[in-house]
Every structure is written in C-alpha cells, then in structure tokens.
Design a protein around this nucleic acid. Structure first.
Length: 370
DNA sequence: AACACAAACAACCGCCACTAG
DNA sequence: ACTAGTGGCGGTTGTTTGTGT
C-alpha cells in the first residue's frame, strides 16, 4: 500500500493560487462551526477544492481571528532580532514570542527588511557578527579608492558641508567610517577572543560572543548603543553624543545621514557599553542568553595600541588561534590593517586626521572598564 | 501614460517528525 | 518494529503593489 499524496492532485481539480473571498468565507464558516480537525477532510467537507495543506496555511497565516495585521513595531523588530540571534531561522519558535504574528509574516519581514538593515550596518544577519568578509571590505576600500582617484583633496576631509562636493564627500565619509567601524569590530573580537578559554563560555556554545549579542540583548530601548557596542562610531553632534534616543533603526539611519553634521572639531567619540551592561533591563528574553560578564583581561586600549603597530607580536598574532574557529575575523585582519595603513598614507590631511581619531579612540577606550 | 524595476507579501513545495494502526 | 497518514516547518517561488524614469 503506497503512501497517498498530501493532496489528490491526480484528479487535476485541486485549486492553487490566491484565495478568493468566497473560499475564505467557506473556510471561516466551516472552522467556526466544526473546528478544523483533519485538514484533509475539512477541505472536502467545507466544499473547498483545495489541498488540506493549503487550507491550513490559509487559516494559519491569514484568516485566523487573532492575527495581528499591519506594520511591525520597533519593539517587535527588536524582539525578532534578539530571538533570531539565539534561535536562528526558527520562525515558528520566534512567532510564539510575538502574539498575533505568524511565522510566515516574520520570515518575510526578516528577509525584506531586517536582513537588509543588518547588512547595511555591517552586521552579518546569519551570525549576528560584524561583517568582515573580504567582499564587504573590498567594497569599502574600493569606495575609498574611487574617491581618492578623483584627485580632489577635499574628498579626503569631512568637507561635506561644501555643496559642490557633498555627495562624493558623503561616500568617502561613509566608507571611511564603516572601514574604521569594521576595524574596531575586529579589535573587539580580538580583545574578547583573547580573554581566557572561550570554549567554556556558554555564549560561545551558543555561537554568541558576548560582545556581539549583548549589543542586542542588553539594550531594550537603544539600538544606537547596540550598534556602538559593535564598535560603531558616532560623531559628536554639536557637542553631544547622538546615542541618547530610544528609537532604533530610524536613529541609526539618522546618525548615518547626519554624518555631515560633524562638529567643528571633527572629533568622534566611541559609545561603548560594558558587555555586562543592562541584562536585567532587557524586557524581551532575560533567560535565553546567559550574561557573560567579562572581568579583567585585555583592555580595549591595548588592542588599539596593537592596531597602531600591526607588526606587533602580541595578541593578534600569538593568542588568537585558540578561538579562531569562533572568530573568522582573524582571516581578514591583515587586510583591514593594510587598508588602514593605506588610509593613513593616503594624504597628509587624511593621515593626521585618522591619527587624531585613533588617538581619541585610544584615549576613550582606556577609560572603559570591561 | 507606459514601461521597467524593486519591494512586499501570499502561497507552494519538499522535507521531517510525530502518531496511530 | 514498521509504515502510512498527517501536520508543521523552512526555503523558495509567484503575484501584486509601489516607485522611478
């Protein structure tokens, strides 16, 4: 006795494609009166010329009365990101934490919105780690190369206030900023990777280096800080940091869009949150990921110093291999250092400017207690 | 107005796990 | 223990809608 197919497609009468209002009504009426029971028999009894599977899907994803329609809120968006960083593409499990939302809806939202935004932020949506893939970095360096080749000295400054060079200046700024961001992400990775044996760290068992996922998990209301936790830099805006708002994506984009509004000193600050930060404040998933307080170990400033001396024989070259499996960043660190050196050699204006930034970041980082 | 392209969304398909016989 | 039937899940595709040229 062979296994019968899910639907009796041999008859050729099973309808596919979009549902009509009439079909929806039939399905709703039947389920209201009898419940769904067996989906296969339901399709027949309800007079629907549809596969039972199709009926179930239509009901679960569209007709169910408790379905919440409309745009996802920022809270929901944050929850999805948090859960995805822990659960991966387990859409149905993620959906159980979002009442009224279906796995299909969440999956679509992820693929059409969140995924793109994470990529734009330089975060790998699959691993939730900073993107350090070769192609991504090459794109950035190519951007820089294009702007440099234009031969406009202003391109290598933060001179976007000049309307004549605004667009090109923005591109240069963004590329430089993101390259530096990636640089810091790698340094963060190296710093944490060097802190003892990560194989015993429960976050590593989850594939979640603490510095990485806490960026999401620790901050219920401030994704900007989350980005900063990934090593992103944000300009002082008229003397104050931009990361005080509670908005999420809008703020990030706003911060990027406002990069031309750098204060007169052209100085940056790093907004770095301790990875033992606000775990208890996370309203979403307090129990899913253990907090991983990082005590002692290498300071961020030491990493910065190492960065300035890329040939240093310290951590990057010697201690790293123990966690290489968890931190693919090592594969590309030489590339990013080369990029930095290229940047520094780009021209004198740029060189002094970037050195200023590095000095500043070094100073700021030395004040941070991990 | 017409067309091309991209984004968003709904639905399908194949596989897997579970359960009853 | 084995197998057919079923539901559920995740990946993918197809369709619709929106936007720019």
């Amino acid at each position: 006795m062979g296994r019968s197919p899910c639907c009796d497609e041999s008859s050729g009468n099973v309808k596919k494609g979009p549902w009509t209002e009439e079909e929806d009504e039939k399905l709703i009426d039947y389920i209201k009166k009898h419940g769904h029971g067996s989906w296969r028999t339901l399709a027949k009894r309800a007079g629907l010329n549809r596969c039972g599977k199709s009926c179930r899907l239509r009901w679960a994803n569209y007709l169910r009365p408790d379905i919440k329609r409309g745009k996802f809120t920022q809270d929901e968006e944050r929850i999805i990101i948090n859960l995805h960083s822990v659960l991966g593409n387990k859409w149905s499990k993620i959906a159980t934490h979002l009442p009224g939302r279906t796995d299909n809806e969440i999956k679509n939202f992820w693929n059409t919105h969140i995924r793109k935004k994470l990529l734009q932020m330089g975060i790998d949506p699959e691993t939730h780690k900073p993107r350090t893939d070769f192609r991504h970095l090459m794109n950035l360096t190519q951007l820089l190369g294009i702007s440099s080749n234009m031969g406009n000295p202003m391109m290598n400054t933060w001179g976007a206030n000049n309307p004549n060079i605004g667009l090109q200046g923005d591109v240069t700024q963004l590329a430089k900023l993101q390259l530096l961001q990636n640089l810091l992400q790698i340094m963060n990775s190296n710093t944490f990777a060097n802190m003892g044996n990560n194989n015993n760290n429960p976050n590593y068992l989850l594939g979640n280096p603490s510095f990485n996922n806490n960026a999401y998990l620790n901050n219920g209301s401030n994704t900007l800080q989350a980005v900063a936790n990934h090593g992103a830099l944000f300009p002082h805006q008229h003397g104050t940091t931009t990361s005080t708002g509670s908005e999420s994506w809008g703020n990030i984009e706003g911060a990027v869009n406002n990069m031309q509004e750098i204060d007169c000193c052209n100085k940056f600050s790093i907004n770095v949150i301790s990875s033992e930060g606000n775990q208890e404040e996370n309203p979403v998933l307090p129990a899913l990921v253990a907090s991983s307080p990082v005590t002692g170990g290498t300071s961020c400033s030491s990493s910065l110093n190492q960065m300035e001396n890329k040939n240093s024989s310290s951590c990057c070259n010697t201690s790293a291999p123990t966690s290489t499996a968890h931190s693919p960043n090592y594969n590309y660190s030489n590339t990013i250092f080369d990029d930095l050196e290229m940047l520094l050699q780009d021209d004198e204006t740029s060189s002094s400017y970037w050195k200023d930034i590095l000095d500043l970041t070094s100073t700021s980082a030395s004040k941070i207690s991990w």
